[in-house]
Simulated scan of single mutants.
Amino acid sequence: MSKASAYFQVENMTDKKDVETIKKELDTLHGVISVSTNTHTGRVAVDYDTTGVEQSRIEDKLQRLGYKIQAEKNENHVM
């Protein structure tokens, strides 16, 4: 298993409903390990298994949910 973390700065995540929607929907992607959000900073952090999902699919899912991504960052973890 190869793990990575993706960090997204989203523009319109403002309340608990947004947080619940993002976590619920990203958790449906095969390979997503954990999802963390911060409504104050607009940041979404996703830990995932790169053999199960690619960062582009996570980004696409956020955009299809209606969240505008301002910035993103990816970190691969060596195990």
Score class of each variant (00 low, 15 high):
Ser36Arg: 01
Lys16Trp: 11
Leu29Glu: 04
Val32Leu: 10
Glu11Ser: 13
Val46Phe: 02
Lys17Cys: 10
Asp18Pro: 07
Tyr67Ile: 02
Lys68Trp: 01
Asp18Glu: 00
Ala71Thr: 09
Asp60Gln: 08
Gly42Asn: 03
Asp15Thr: 06
Asp15Met: 00
Glu59Ser: 07
Thr41Glu: 05
Thr39His: 01
Glu59Arg: 09
Val78Gly: 06
Arg57Ile: 05
Thr21Ser: 10
Thr39Cys: 08
Asn38Cys: 07
Lys73Ser: 09
Glu72Trp: 02
Glu75Ala: 14
Lys3Gln: 09
Met1Pro: 11
Leu29Asp: 04
Gln70Trp: 06
His77Trp: 12
Thr50Pro: 02
Leu29Gly: 02
Tyr67Cys: 00
Asp18Trp: 01
Lys16Gly: 15
Gly52Asp: 08
Ala6Gly: 13
Lys73Val: 13
Ala45Gly: 09
Asn74Ile: 14
Thr37Glu: 07
Ile69Trp: 06
Arg57Gly: 11
Leu65Arg: 04
Asp18Tyr: 05
Tyr48Ser: 08
Lys17Trp: 11
Phe8Trp: 03
Glu20Ala: 13
Ile58Gln: 06
Leu26Gly: 08
Asp49Leu: 05
Val78His: 13
Ser2Lys: 15
Val35Asn: 04
Glu11Arg: 04
Arg64Trp: 00
Ile22Glu: 01
Asp60Phe: 01
Ser36Glu: 08
Ser36His: 05
Ala6Trp: 10
Leu62Asn: 03
His30Met: 14
Ser56Val: 12
Met13Phe: 07
Asn76Val: 14
Leu62His: 05
Lys73Leu: 13
Leu26Tyr: 10
Lys68Glu: 05
Val53Asp: 07
Val78Met: 13
Glu54Ser: 12
Thr21Tyr: 00
Asp60Val: 00
Gly52Met: 06
Lys68Phe: 01
Glu20Asp: 06
Ser56Gln: 15
